[in-house]
Computed example of a mutant assay.
Amino acid sequence: MPAVIRRSLLDDLAASMLDSIAERRLAPGEPFESVRSLAARLQVAVPTIREALRRLEATGAVELRHGSGVYVGPNVGRLVLANPLALKPTAERLVELVQARALIEPPIAAVAAGARSEADLEQLEAQLDRAAELIGSGDHERLAATNMDFHRTLAQATGNAILAEVVASVTVVNVREQLAILHIHGDREADLAEHQAILTAVRDGDAVLAERLARAHLDGVLAAISKH
């Protein structure tokens, strides 16, 4: 039976890796150190490094690409992260989650319509392009993540960091629930079309329409979840 690695050691290793990513100012998608380099620098065995990396990968802070190496993950800069050991989402939790989002996100879309920058619009457009590709490939897990990235970027477009963290708290933390919602909602093309309409309203600076479309979008999701 393999030896049990102390949790504190893995936590320390993971924290050290995150510190190194921050110190080097590495952005999501950029390559990080190799497993063997990390093992040598941190003076621990390769299997221990792999276990620490797997913990970081579970939160999206790094990505382990087979045959390529270790890369900085999309969640590395987020203050709120998903719990990889969370229990299976219940029907009641799914309904409550969408209800919360329906209260929070439509006014955020309105603010974004007045505050958005060109960079925000480009990022939102790129995320919808990515979503269209994932619908075609059938990669539902990545599609759910990309859809949530769209909603978080919309919150970031307000220029208010607290609003962005609020949206992250009900999307990143509930990532398994979001995937379940995508499966239940089912109509991925309609979902994409609604996101595109919201983006058009935001791009046009139409706060009233952006809020109305965001509310209709989430009300539709809530209706599908409640019916299911």
Rank of each mutant, 00 (worst) to 15 (best):
A86W: 00
Y71E: 05
H217C: 05
V70P: 02
G138M: 09
L218W: 08
G138I: 11
I5P: 08
M1W: 05
L128S: 09
A216Q: 06
R65W: 15
S117F: 08
H228I: 01
R215V: 00
T153E: 12
V35S: 06
E92F: 07
G77P: 02
R188P: 01
L182F: 11
A193L: 15
D219G: 01
P89D: 13
R55N: 07
Q156Y: 12
A39H: 06
I49N: 04
I181A: 05
H140V: 14
I184G: 01
A144K: 07
G77R: 15
P84N: 03
D120I: 05
L121P: 02
R176F: 05
L182Y: 08
T171G: 02
E23F: 01
A144Y: 09
A193S: 14
S20A: 09
R6M: 04
L222M: 04
R152I: 11
G114V: 04
A201V: 03
L18S: 04
G67T: 02
L26K: 00
S37Q: 09
L56T: 01
M1T: 07
F150I: 14
V202C: 07
P31N: 03
D187P: 02
D11K: 13
A210M: 14
I198A: 03
E189K: 12
M148V: 02
I162M: 09
L10T: 05
E33P: 00
Q196H: 10
L26P: 00
V76C: 10
G73H: 10
G29S: 00
L192G: 11
R50T: 15
R116V: 14
G136C: 07
R54M: 10
M1Y: 08
T146W: 10
A197W: 13
D219N: 06
R93C: 02
R6G: 05
E23R: 05
E211V: 04
L199M: 14
A131V: 09
I49S: 06
R50I: 15
N174V: 12
H195N: 11
A100N: 06
